[in-house]
């Protein structure tokens, strides 16, 4: 129903000339320049920003913090990017984070299962959540924003039910390593996120799957007529998003050694959607960029870290964040670029 009449969107697809062309076109320019600018601004505000030391055998510094803190958001955002590629949206990611963290924490507290099984159970919870969303969207044809809103609201309740509304804390060397351990000086969570994201990139861009996702997002009906299992692809996208959120949930719970069902992942869906959009994707579906989404996450995270370092009173942080995001988006908007171009052309002759 929602995907029938949008043939006019196809020109946007034409903008990206295959995976290699995507990198060579100027699409990546906006986000990368924005990231560089935010980081340079951080350096100006706080001179110690670029300091990277080795403390207790691992890297330590604000730049490391950005990657470290951004890892979980990047996982969520990459899953979100694929869902948005199918012309969907997944509002439930924050709740899935809470559920997987809750499952993990309660299992560690109440059972003596091996960490491997506990992780599988947490991932399984994410998979089920994704499957639920996918079936609602693909087979029952419910609008994605509504379908995932159900789990966004109910999911937090489920997580609170699992934890009895309390913060469930746990201890264990394995999980503490996931949250804040290091391998060769690099945080484990960054390594985990990098592996998952690289794996997804390979699946999407080295096989035809990414193309299928974009085809379904561009025009679900046409893609079905072309022989693509549009429903299957949609379900798969939501399952991937659910799994990515579950991994993020594991990392977030391991980070604070506890599952905080009320707050874990709260409003993270908004940061994730923002990162996808800053990374140049269209909410109308049909295109998505995993690497640029990660750049989008780093911009948002660098901005947050920079604001904390700057000592700006907390009541202004949201406004500053919003203002910078708006500038980044304006720079990328075709209309704004045209207007700026006209402005410069008019000034040049004089």
């Amino acid at each position: 129903m929602t995907t029938l009449q949008d043939t006019k969107k196809s020109p946007q697809n034409g903008g990206r000339k295959g995976p290699a062309g995507g990198l060579l076109s100027r699409q990546w320019l906006g986000p990368v320049i924005a990231l560089v600018l935010v980081i340079v601004a951080n350096g100006l505000i706080s001179p110690s920003f670029f300091n990277i030391k080795v403390v207790d055998g691992h890297l330590y510094g604000s730049l490391v913090d950005i990657i470290h803190r951004g890892a979980s958001t990047a996982l969520v955002a990459v899953g979100m990017a694929i869902v948005i590629g199918t012309r969907g949206i997944d509002l439930s990611v924050g709740s899935v984070i809470a559920i997987s963290g809750a499952v993990m924490a309660v299992l560690i507290r109440d059972t003596s299962l091996s960490p491997f099984i506990v992780i599988l159970a947490a991932l399984g919870a994410g998979l089920l959540c994704g499957l639920w969303n996918g079936i609602l969207v693909a087979y029952l044809d419910i609008q994605p924003i509504i379908a995932t809103l159900i789990l966004m609201v109910a999911g937090r309740g489920i997580a609170q039910m699992i934890t009895d509304g309390q913060i469930v804390t746990f201890h264990g060397a394995f999980f503490e390593a996931i949250g804040s351990g290091y391998l060769l000086g690099i945080p484990w969570r960054v390594i985990i996120a990098a592996i998952v994201i690289a794996g997804l990139w390979a699946i999407m861009r080295k096989t035809a799957l990414g193309l299928f996702v974009e085809a379904v997002g561009g025009n679900a009906r046409a893609s079905r007529l072309a022989g693509i299992d549009a429903r299957g692809i949609k379900v798969l996208a939501y399952v991937i998003s659910g799994l990515c959120s579950a991994v993020a949930g594991i990392i977030i719970a391991a980070d604070i050694r506890g599952a905080d069902a009320n707050n874990a992942g709260l409003w993270l869906e908004l940061d994730a959607i923002l990162a996808v959009v800053v990374g140049g994707a269209s909410l109308m579906g049909g295109r998505f960029y995993l690497a640029l989404t990660v750049v989008g996450v780093l911009i948002i995270q660098a901005l947050g870290t920079g604001i904390l370092l700057s000592g700006l009173p907390s009541q202004y942080t949201l406004i500053v964040k919003a203002a910078v995001v708006m500038v980044v988006l304006l720079v990328q908007a075709p209309r704004a670029r045209q207007m700026m171009g006209r402005f410069w052309r008019r000034r040049d002759p004089q």
Binding site: S46, D255, D260, N263, L308
Partner: peptide, 19 residues
């Protein structure tokens, strides 16, 4: 502001320590 949460407190404290 750490928003009354554990992860908020941790993130803000990390940046304070660096600053």
């Amino acid at each position: 502001s750490g928003d009354f949460t554990r992860s908020g407190g941790k993130e803000v404290m990390e940046s304070f320590l660096k600053a």
